[in-house]
Write a protein that binds this DNA or RNA. Structure first.
Length: 112
DNA sequence: ATTGTGACTTCGG
DNA sequence: GCCGAAGCCACAA
């Protein structure tokens, strides 16, 4: 496992209900620019006990990055709809739902 | 060292 | 706006 997983998990846990973030965005906020793919891996390997809001992470195009036929795809879509995020044909309006964290406050959150 | 793979991203057409 | 190609990073065979 990468030493960076914890940082990724931490940032992920801060995405508020009703918002979404892209893999690349999480990588950036975790101080790992260019490593979007590592974020997807970190989510897959995340221990269930952490109970992370993994469903709030989608790709930069606003689309769910899971195979559309899979059970996990259905669950992610369901969870998003559940918290008020509109999903049409597997995609979300990023301009409307993308997380825009206050960096100073985020910095504080990460300390603790 | 080389190759293939993936819950990615960006750029062109 | 929807692909496909090319870039990219980490990792396992």
């Amino acid at each position: 496992m990468s030493d960076n997983y914890p940082r990724i998990w931490k940032v992920t846990s801060l995405i508020p209900r009703g918002s979404v973030a892209s893999y690349g965005q999480i990588a950036d906020l975790a101080g790992l620019p260019g490593r979007a793919r590592l974020v997807s891996k970190a989510l897959k390997d995340a221990p269930r006990e952490l109970d992370l809001p993994w469903h709030r992470i989608i790709n930069a195009q606003g689309k769910i990055s899971l195979p559309k036929n899979s059970e996990s795809y259905r669950e992610q879509r369901e969870r998003l709809l559940m918290e008020g995020v509109r999903v049409r044909d597997g995609k979300v309006d990023m301009g409307l739902y993308q997380w825009q964290p206050d960096l100073l406050q985020l910095l504080f959150e990460l300390e603790y």
